[in-house]
Simulated assay, not measured.
Amino acid sequence: MQLTCPCCGEQFPFEAGLADEEGKRLAALFAEMPPKLAKAVLSYLRLFSPAKRSLRMSKAIRLVSDLQQLVDAGSVTRDARTTDARKATPALWVAGIEQVIVQREKLTLPLENHHYLRAVVYGIASDPAAVQALTPKTVKPGTDANERLERYYQIQNDLRLKLITPEEADKRLKELGQ
C-alpha cells in the first residue's frame, strides 16, 4: 500500500514509515491517543522542526510522550512551578493545540517544549464558557466541540471589535447553547 505525504506529495510504502524501532514507538504513541488529539499533535509537531532539517524521530517521540503525560494528568498548571491546577480534558488540549498553530507566525520557532501550549490550555481551562463549549454533554448533535469553541471565540471577538451588539452576541451565544 502506498501513502502520499500531505506536505510534499511524495509517495512511499506504508511499511517504510514503520521500518525502524523509533517509527514503531512513535506510531504506538499516536495509536494510544484519541483520534482528534493525535491529528492535532501531528500538526503541532511541525512547530518543533528546525528550519533547515526535519525533526529527529527521537525528539518527536520525547515530545509526544511528554505531551501525552500532560494530557493523561487530567489537569493543567500554567507552568511547572505553580500548583494552581485546572481540569483539562483531551478536548481542551486539542483546542489549545489549534490555538497555538493559528498563532504560528507570532511564535519563535522551533519550539523547544510544551510550556506555551500549557499556558494556552490553562487559559482555556480558566474560561468557564470555553470549558462548557468543550464539554461533551453540552454539544448539540452534529456539532463538533472544537467547532463550538471556535464559534464562541468568534462571537466574543466580534463583540470586542464592535462588529455586533451585546444583544446580538447574547442571541448567538444562546443559539450556541451558552
Rank of each mutant, 00 (worst) to 15 (best):
S75M: 10
G74V: 00
G142Q: 08
G142N: 11
T77M: 08
T138C: 03
D144H: 09
R151L: 14
T135D: 13
S43I: 03
L45Y: 02
L159G: 12
L176A: 04
L92N: 02
G123M: 04
I101F: 03
Q69N: 14
A27S: 13
C8H: 08
A88M: 03
A125N: 08
A40N: 07
R62G: 03
M1R: 09
P13L: 03
A73E: 09
A91G: 08
G17N: 11
H114K: 05
L176Q: 05
R56M: 08
E21H: 08
V100N: 00
A129M: 13
D20H: 13
L161A: 12
Y152N: 07
L18Y: 12
P128W: 03
E21D: 12
L42G: 15
L3R: 06
S65C: 11
T77E: 15
V121R: 14
F30H: 09
T77D: 06
L42D: 07
V121N: 13
T83W: 06
A91H: 02
C7H: 14
T135K: 07
Q2R: 11
L26R: 02
F12A: 12
D158T: 00
R118M: 11
L176K: 05
L109G: 07
L92V: 04
G17Y: 07
L159F: 13
F48N: 04
L109M: 05
P110H: 00
W93V: 04
T4L: 07
L149W: 12
L45R: 03
L173S: 07
A60M: 02
V41S: 05
K140D: 11
A119F: 11
R62V: 03
M1W: 01
K106V: 11
R78Y: 12
A16T: 03
Y122R: 09
N146H: 12
L29K: 03
V139L: 14
R148L: 00
T165A: 15
Y122F: 15
A40L: 06
D66C: 09
A169G: 12
D84K: 10
S75R: 12
R172D: 13
A129G: 10
P128R: 10
L3K: 02
L55V: 00
Q103C: 11
T143E: 15
T83Y: 05
D84C: 01
D170K: 09
K162R: 14
F30G: 06
T143H: 15
E150H: 06
K39F: 09
K36P: 14
P13V: 08
E32Q: 13
Q69P: 06
G23H: 10
L176E: 11
P35E: 05
S43P: 05
D144R: 05
L107C: 10
C8L: 01
V131W: 13
T143L: 15
Q154Y: 00
V94T: 09
T135S: 12
L45D: 02
T77G: 14
A88P: 06
V120T: 15
Y153V: 01
A88S: 01
R25W: 10
A28N: 02
S49A: 15
P90K: 00
C8F: 06
K24V: 15
T89L: 00
F30L: 04
G123V: 07
Q68K: 14
N146A: 04
R86C: 04
D72N: 15
E175K: 03
S54I: 01
R148Q: 04
K106F: 07
